[in-house]
């Protein structure tokens, strides 16, 4: 799979204030019986959106929000904690999200997200508080410059794994890079025996 290049996009924010949004919330474990990674968007945050009978609930935070317009998810502190399931970013990407912004994003989720073109963006608590308080605001995310830009020219820089960023900017599959290390891998193995 060669990845689509990502450098810059503009979208509105969807805010989920809750802290510690774990991967069981993002996609409940009972849906992990799939053997494919496509089409999981309909299961994203399923238990937040549907009742036991599978009917939409009134408290659905996504109701009336066109995923094509709200592609940036601003979540509470420690987003993506819990299980290593890559089904979580698969579901979020299929739902329509292209970036997650939080103060802290769990390690495994962050790695998984980057590999699927979903930008995990960590910002300072002060910036985070501003974003939580302004749901629906339009932001431009510039991966090349590592900046979040608001229409009124408010700008904030963010950190992102440099290698993951380069892979996304150039559309490089990290597996290709690992395969290019084959000679070194063989040398390492020869030393072990």
């Amino acid at each position: 799979m060669s990845l689509d290049k990502i450098s810059r996009f503009t979208s509105k924010t969807m805010v989920l204030e809750a802290e510690n949004i774990d991967t069981d919330q993002i996609i409940p474990a009972r849906f992990l019986t799939t053997t494919v990674r496509e089409g999981l968007g309909k299961l994203a945050f399923y238990d937040w959106r549907y009742n036991e009978a599978g009917l939409p609930v009134n408290s659905d935070p996504f109701a009336g929000k066109d995923p094509a317009i709200y592609q940036i998810l601003v979540g509470g502190d420690n987003f993506g904690c819990g299980s290593s399931r890559e089904h979580a970013p698969w579901a979020l990407v299929d739902f329509g999200f292209r970036a997650i912004i939080s103060t802290k994003i769990a390690d495994i989720f962050k790695n998984n997200a980057l590999k699927n073109g979903l930008l995990p963006i960590e910002v300072e608590p002060k910036i985070h508080a501003e974003l939580l308080a302004s749901p629906g605001v339009e932001l431009t995310i510039d991966l090349e410059r590592r900046e979040i830009i608001r229409a009124d020219h408010w700008r904030q820089s963010f950190d992102v794994d440099p290698f993951g960023r380069q892979c996304l900017l150039d559309g490089i599959d990290p597996l290709g890079f690992l395969q290019s290390c084959e000679a070194d891998i063989e040398k390492f193995e020869a030393r072990q025996t």
Partner: peptide
């Protein structure tokens, strides 16, 4: 690790 990384370890 995530599933993409599982594939990385399988391959390399």
């Amino acid at each position: 690790i995530g599933t993409t990384e599982v594939a990385h370890v399988f391959a390399t």
